[in-house]
Amino acid sequence: MKFFLKLTYMELKLQLREPVALFFSLAFPVMVMVLFGFIFGNEAEERLGGYGQVDLSVPGYIGMVVGTIGMLSIPTTLANYRDLGILRRLRATPLGSSPVLWSQVAAQVVMTAAGIILLFIAGLAIFDLRIPNGNLAIVPAALLSAFSFFAVGFVLAGVMPSARTAQAVGMAIFYPMLFLSGAAMPRYIMPDFVQQIAGLLPLTHVVILMEDLWLKGTWNLTSVVVIAIMLILGLVISRFTFRWE
């Protein structure tokens, strides 16, 4: 167990030494929150059910953190480790393959949690964030969403020929999804047909799952199923596509 903790802790230290990755997974969602918060404010509004704009955006920002880490951090990190021969060196130890992969998952779960906690700290400190119902259920929901997006990240890392393409393709898939899903801006301002397309995106379901738990304390089962299917597909596909070198 000691080696697993060391490996995970080391991975976290390495993530924290990577300024670009750090910016996208930790700072960017907070920046978006602060930016929109200053534009729209967080006054309680009748039409928003007594909440402010920032209060309602938190579930989306959680989706943003989960998606950024799953689709940008993980594929880039793993493909880079493979390209440089870092995975190859690790395999030449008695460690075996699963601790290497699980330590990556564990470290990225911590990063996701850190990203979400930073959102709450910024929200509470700057915008007097109101925390509605069902607030603790977002923890298992965020974990499920994270695992599901991490699995997609493992698929991307395995399928893409290099770290550069993994990063480019990750961005090409993630950024349109980010803006359509309601993770960065509310879906209700979008035209109907865009909302319909958005309904097909996995990240939208993460945002819906979070919103329902956040505001009503209820689990949206459709979204849970969509996210779970993506998790299972991701695990199965990455099982066959992951490459160590």
Binding site: L14, E18, L84, G85, R88, R89, P94
Partner: peptide, 16 residues
């Protein structure tokens, strides 16, 4: 693996 040591070609450690 516990009884041998290896230095492999094209293997590396993370830059940082």
């Amino acid at each position: 693996g516990n009884r041998i040591g290896t230095q492999l070609q094209e293997a590396a450690l993370p830059e940082r």
